[in-house]
Amino acid sequence: MTPSVRSRLWASGAAFVLGFAVANYGIIRVSRPDLWIWLGLAVVLMATSAAGVLFADTRRAVSIWSLIGVELFAAFTLVPVLWTFTVATAPEGTTPNTVWPQEISWAAFDGALHSQILQDAAVTSVFVAGIATAVAMPLAVGAAYALVRLPVHGRRFVYALVVLALLLPLLALAGPITDQVIAFDRFGTRMSLVPPALAITLPLAIWLCVTVFRDVPWSLRESVRADGATWPQAFVRFALPNVLPGVLVATLLVFVAACNDFVLGAALSADDDSRPLPATLMLATGQLEASSSAIAAAGLLWVAPVVLLLLVFPRRITQLLGRSYR
């Protein structure tokens, strides 16, 4: 669908007004070097406004509103990351007062890597997320295959329940789950975090695997089997190139989501020995030397594998997260 000329002109006007406001606010209220961040955003918005006017009367499927949304999303994402980097690299005993880093010291990263509290918390996160993912993925593959390929009665209702479980706020489950863990006398252990973690991994795994199986060319499997291929040959020629890559990326996404859980980790952990890293970063202020810098550095180190995953599999992740079951 090609946007209308009126829509593009309205978007161009909005981008110009927004860029003009950002530039004036930066010049009046913001000092250097943060001023350059505001001016950079203003220039991008005004350039978008000019591009909207130039492309207003063309048939190209360019949405100026979408460009504005992407630019604002990037700004609201990158600026907090930059501030976290500034806090993490601030010299010991100093508090940064600008978003742009002035002096860079890597001592906090070294402290975060050698902190026993953070090391134990990272091991707990990987341990719990790994087991929960290993349990969830085989179940999700079978469920997704049934939802996509088999004429199961009420499969749309079942899929709706999966999405409902995926959207259910974990905070509402934290209290009842904690009571059950205490009743089984397992509160404060790493293994007590694994069953509740399935509330995160299983619905997400089913949702992602449904998307994977929807994009699989199943007619190719029928052709391979019609040619007389055995089950091992069909697996090698069909499943490995067509199914396994998507399932692998889905597994990595489920693992990352489980690693980043904060609610259940904080509710079901009695002390630092059983607390995963996200909960530790939120609750460890004052327990670490140079706590603000160390926590910021640990957060950046923890998010680095996620960024690497996005850089390695950008197209596959976009396909998984941008599709739905119909």
Rank of each mutant, 00 (worst) to 15 (best):
V5W: 05
W10C: 00
G26W: 06
V30L: 01
P33R: 06
V43M: 11
L54I: 15
S66Q: 15
I68G: 02
V70F: 15
T77W: 14
V79W: 10
T86S: 13
T89M: 07
G93L: 14
N97T: 13
W106R: 03
A107H: 12
A107N: 09
A112V: 14
I117M: 12
V123S: 02
I131L: 13
A140N: 09
V141M: 13
A143E: 03
L161W: 11
A165D: 03
P169T: 07
A174T: 07
A174N: 03
G175N: 07
F184T: 13
F187G: 06
L193S: 04
V194D: 02
P195T: 07
T201F: 03
L204G: 02
A205S: 12
W207T: 02
V210H: 05
V212Y: 06
S219Q: 05
L220A: 08
A226E: 14
W231S: 11
W231D: 05
L244I: 15
A250V: 05
L252H: 06
C259R: 01
D261T: 03
D261I: 02
F262P: 00
L264R: 04
D271R: 11
L281G: 05
G286P: 03
A296P: 09
W302A: 00
V303S: 11
A304S: 11
V307S: 00
F313P: 02
L320M: 02
